[in-house]
């Protein structure tokens, strides 16, 4: 006997909520990816806990696929962040090529034209 099933679900719900808050309130592309990672981790916790509760190994299989999807998501997401940072010199999600960075953000100066 470990703990009631609802406690594992509660842990997953709290961790998912933290990832959600991070994704919704931070204005930094890398912190948004961190929030996504926390949410995927919470989903994996819930799958493993449910697999133990119902005596099925499927939960662990799903958690393994979640890890694989997280790896793919992070590699592409970080490549996009680096690509955006090279173009705008900023990690603010509102700074793109088309829209100017809003006032109050520290935007690094454009690279000076070299000789």
């Amino acid at each position: 006997m470990i703990v009631p099933y609802t406690h594992v679900m509660l842990l997953g719900a709290i961790v998912f909520l933290m990832g959600m808050i991070c994704t919704l309130t931070r204005r930094n592309l890398m912190m948004i990816i961190v929030g996504l990672e926390i949410m995927l981790n919470a989903a994996a916790i819930v799958f493993v806990g449910a697999g133990l509760e119902f005596g099925q190994i499927e939960g662990q299989v799903m958690a393994l696929f979640i890890v694989a999807v997280a790896a793919a998501e992070v590699s592409v997401g970080l490549a996009m962040v680096v690509c955006i940072y090279r173009q705008t010199q900023s990690l603010d999600p509102q700074c793109t090529e088309d829209s100017r960075c809003p006032a109050g953000t520290e935007k690094a100066s454009e690279p000076a034209s070299g000789p």
Binding site: M30, Y85, L91, T105
Partner: peptide
């Protein structure tokens, strides 16, 4: 993650 953070070295307090 660490590799990318150290590669682009963003300003720590630049968040709106």
């Amino acid at each position: 993650f660490l590799f990318i953070v150290m590669m682009i070295r963003p300003a720590p307090a630049g968040e709106r």
